[in-house]
């Protein structure tokens, strides 16, 4: 059990997909214009990650090596489609603001990467913990980036206004601000981790 806990913590800290592995940059940069968007994107990815890790780990002996990548993609795409349909049905506003990036979870290299590098080689339980850990790390990173960008850009945090919007640095809501904020967050994360 301690091993599984360590896998979980590794996913958040030592192997954090955004700050350390620098994977899944496309949704990280594109969907974090506000904290709530970043968090929802993270949670959606986490759901897909956990489900696909579980299924792939339990089917790993059944899937022949030669077709494992197509099989993984089919499994991942299934869960992504489920997320998309459910979101469209019950959270239409959120689905609108995340737009194309929900379907694009299919090609998020974190999901396929964990399937190939972890779930296909480990037990179902460890894969579950790995999925939760990495997913949590991704969600935390995206939320943090979203909070920073929303606060700097419009003076809000989770839609609560802290200072008048006129004083916000709009650049942080736009694409270049995503790169700048991410760069500094990665630097800070590395500095803290080295201590």
């Amino acid at each position: 059990m301690t091993k599984n806990i360590r896998i979980l913590i590794n996913g958040v800290v030592k192997d954090n997909p955004v700050f350390v592995l620098l994977l899944g940059m496309c949704p990280t940069l594109a969907t974090t214009s506000s904290a709530i968007n970043g968090m929802s994107m993270g949670l959606a990815t986490m759901f897909v990650l956990v489900c696909s890790n579980l299924v792939i780990a339990s089917l790993k002996n059944f899937i022949p090596d030669l077709v494992r990548i197509p099989a993984f993609i089919v499994i991942i795409a299934t869960f992504v489609t489920i997320v998309e349909m459910v979101m469209n049905a019950y959270l239409p506003a959120l689905a609108d603001s995340l737009g194309i990036f929900i379907p694009l979870i299919v090609v998020n290299c974190i999901v396929l990467g964990r399937a190939e590098a972890f779930a296909a080689k480990n037990t179902v339980l460890s894969s579950l913990f790995d999925g939760v850990g990495i997913g949590l790390g991704f969600t935390l990173a995206l939320t943090l980036l979203g909070v920073v960008r929303e606060f700097m850009g419009s003076g809000r945090m989770f839609s609560v206004s802290f200072f008048p919007e006129d004083f916000g640095v709009t650049l942080f809501i736009l694409a270049p601000g995503a790169f700048i904020a991410l760069g500094y967050l990665v630097a800070i994360f590395n500095k803290l981790q080295r201590k």
């Binding site: 640095v169 709009t170 650049l171 942080f172 736009l174 270049p176």
Partner: peptide
């Protein structure tokens, strides 16, 4: 450019 984009 930072200012131009932020405070157009």
């Amino acid at each position: 450019v930072f200012l131009l984009i932020s405070f157009p």
